[in-house]
Design a protein around this nucleic acid. Structure first.
Lengths: 217, 217
DNA sequence: CCTACCGATCGGTAGG
DNA sequence: CCTACCGATCGGTAGG
């Protein structure tokens, strides 16, 4: 019935209450890492608005206000997650297309990387897409811009494949939207526990993407 | 600087401040319609948690607390939107597959209907997918169940096409996820103002879905 | 459909 | 990293 604070008897030390392997959720490193990981998990499961700083503190093993020793605001946590996610997606894409000179192979590898990320980092991807409107300006516009750039990479690849005669698309832009969106969907329903492992999904989505771009019989 | 309420001088009557054609956003009818439509618009643009009853009231042209004359709670508004959306999707699907006996044609028409709905009712679709975790139990489980049933319709169609030798899928379930997800994505980026009209997108997505399900060359 | 207002919560600050 | 607490907001109720 208290209205003035917590009644917790737990020790006050950094100690996550979650048993999920942090490396599997995120690649954040350093001091602020554990807070960022917890924030990611809570934002993903409850949503940004619905997550409170006290909840986040409890999840990490400290008091809510203590988080402000590491981050300036709740918003900073979200922005950090957003930019980190876009950086990783861009890096994965660059890496994927560098492994071949053939468009068909490049697109397949890029789609696989896209899907693999959305499976292995489903929380980042999930929060990244769902909480864009929780980001305040000017950061929001910047994130939207990064996403547009990412999409452009796929679109250019498809357009090149079309010009080289490998693909037959009604619209390279619509095709890239479709391929990207079906990959993003993986982050919503993927479960580490199966029945599909990330690698199988990535491979199959790569095949489906290529089929989509070919002339119908 | 006031902390005790609104300073608005507007008349107190039902009069939406939005200029968007309600029929284009939603098919809600009757007395509660205008509130539901406004709620849909605000939930879609700001998110459920971030939308306040006072905001909603202002958008409709009444005071916040007056909404409780029409709805029991904020939650009821969301639940109403959710179930309505699933009903419409299911109805559209049933209608689509009733127009042919051939699986290939059925699937194409069903995908077109799916995409058309996500373009024309992007707010419903958007809120329906993004705000599931804002719905409290037991309604949440029921909505998730309806979504699973909807997916099953597509999966069964694909599986039948495979058994009849029309399709060659590595997994009918993954294929249905991919097709459904790419259609849901339309609700996120579609703009009434172009450059693509809903009909063109629907047709092209229907074609891409069929290509996805065919054997690669 | 309105005003007045309650009980609770929340992000963030002060000052150790 | 903690306690104490502020200023503001929010969903919902009372009683017209």
């Amino acid at each position: 019935m208290s209205t003035t604070g917590h009644q917790s008897d737990e020790p006050r030390a950094i100690r996550p209450t979650s048993e999920i392997d942090p490396e599997q959720i995120s690649d954040f490193k350093g001091r602020r890492a554990i807070i960022l990981k917890s924030a990611l998990e809570l934002f993903a499961t409850h949503g940004y608005e619905a997550t409170t700083m006290d909840q986040l503190g409890e999840h990490v093993g400290i008091r809510g206000p203590s988080i402000y020793k590491h981050f300036r605001s709740k918003q900073e946590l979200l922005v950090e997650i957003m930019f980190h996610t876009m950086e990783r997606l861009q890096a994965n894409f660059a890496d994927a297309i560098s492994q071949s000179d053939e468009v068909t192979q490049q697109l397949k590898t890029a789609v696989e990387a896209h899907v693999r990320y959305h499976a292995h980092h489903r929380f980042e991807a999930f929060v990244g897409t769902r909480e864009i409107y929780s980001v305040t300006e000017p950061d929001r516009s910047e994130v939207i811009d990064l996403r547009a750039q990412y999409e452009c990479g796929f679109r250019d690849l498809i357009e090149r494949g079309r010009l080289e005669g490998h693909f037959d698309t009604g619209s390279s832009r619509l095709a890239s939207f479709a391929i990207l969106d079906m990959g993003m969907g993986v982050a919503v329903w993927f479960k580490e526990t199966g029945p599909f492992d990330a690698e199988r999904i990535a491979r199959y989505y790569g095949i489906m993407a290529l089929r989509m771009l070919r002339r119908s019989a």
